[in-house]
Structures are given as structure tokens and as C-alpha cells.
């Protein structure tokens, strides 16, 4: 549909409150195009009124509201290079830690818990002598030669 040359006048009349008995009112009553324009304008006004509904912040919500604002400000102020550097250092440190642990494990091996000193074997060339081994509670290991008779040598 072609736009009526009265369209701007009618739109202004609509914005100013649709005062009756004006030239724009009289034209709008007769022009199908302007009637349609007024219907569209009315729909737009209703839609704008719905979306323009303001949310009210109660006193109990205010601290959380301000915290959100502060976080937004701080995030905006934090320079991007700071995070990049932190990530780089963290990655290098983690890699170094893994490498050091691996090398340590390779060169030193897994260490089990030390139970104490162990006597694997014992013997004597003395005649008529026996050897025994035992450990005391204080951790002293003893290897003892007992001679039954006087040593012949």
C-alpha cells in the first residue's frame, strides 16, 4: 500500500495524544492507509510498554547487585596479558615438575620402606664354633660366634 502524504502528520498527531477534531483526526477517519498506520503505531506502543517494564531492586537484593557490578568492573580492568602469562608459567612449571619427577624415578628407583638391617649369611672357620644372628629391639643387629671349646688355633 502506498504511503499517504498525511502519514507524518498523522504520526505526529498520534504521538501528541490524538486530539479530536483536528485536521489529522478528520483525515485519519477517512484514509485507509492512515488507519493502518495508526494500528501499527498502536501495536508498537503496546509492545514498547511491555518491554519497558522496570525491574525493581529490593534492599535485600542490593548487595548482590553491587557485587555483580564490581565483578564486571574488575573483569574489565584485568589485562589479558596477565592471564596469558599466568597460563604460560603454570604450564612450564607443571612440565618441569613432571620432568624432574620422571628423572628422579628413573635414576633413583622406587624406594621401599626400610625394615632394618638384614644378615644374609654368616660363617666361621674357627673349629668347634657356631655362628648365630639376631636383632634387638633398639635396632642393633648382632652376629655372634660361640666357641664350644677353647679355640685350637
Amino acid at each position: 500500500m502506498d504511503r499517504c502524504r498525511w502519514a507524518k502528520t498523522v504520526e505526529q498527531w498520534f504521538d501528541e495524544g490524538m486530539t479530536p477534531d483536528t485536521p489529522a483526526a478528520r483525515h485519519a477517519a477517512q484514509c485507509a492507509s492512515c488507519v493502518q498506520t495508526l494500528a501499527i503505531l498502536e501495536q508498537m506502543r503496546e509492545g514498547a510498554q511491555i518491554t519497558a517494564r522496570r525491574e525493581a531492586i529490593s534492599n535485600s537484593q542490593f548487595p548482590a547487585f553491587m557485587e555483580g557490578i564490581r565483578e564486571g568492573i574488575e573483569a574489565a580492568q584485568a589485562p589479558a596479558w596477565h592471564f596469558n602469562r599466568l597460563w604460560t608459567l603454570s604450564s612450564v612449571a607443571a612440565a618441569a615438575l613432571i620432568a624432574s619427577a620422571s628423572l628422579f624415578a628413573v635414576f633413583t628407583g622406587e624406594r621401599g620402606e626400610v625394615e632394618g638391617s638384614v644378615v644374609e649369611s654368616y660363617s666361621t672357620d674357627l673349629e668347634n664354633a657356631d655362628v648365630s644372628s639376631y636383632s634387638t629391639e633398639n635396632g642393633t643387629t648382632t652376629v655372634w660366634v660361640t666357641t664350644a671349646e677353647e679355640d685350637l688355633w
Partner: peptide, 10 residues
Amino acid sequence: NALRTTSRLV
């Protein structure tokens, strides 16, 4: 050898 032993000592 009055005594001969092989031991693992802490």
C-alpha cells in the same frame, strides 16, 4: 676367618 658375614645394613 673368625667370622664372615654378608649383611644389608641400614
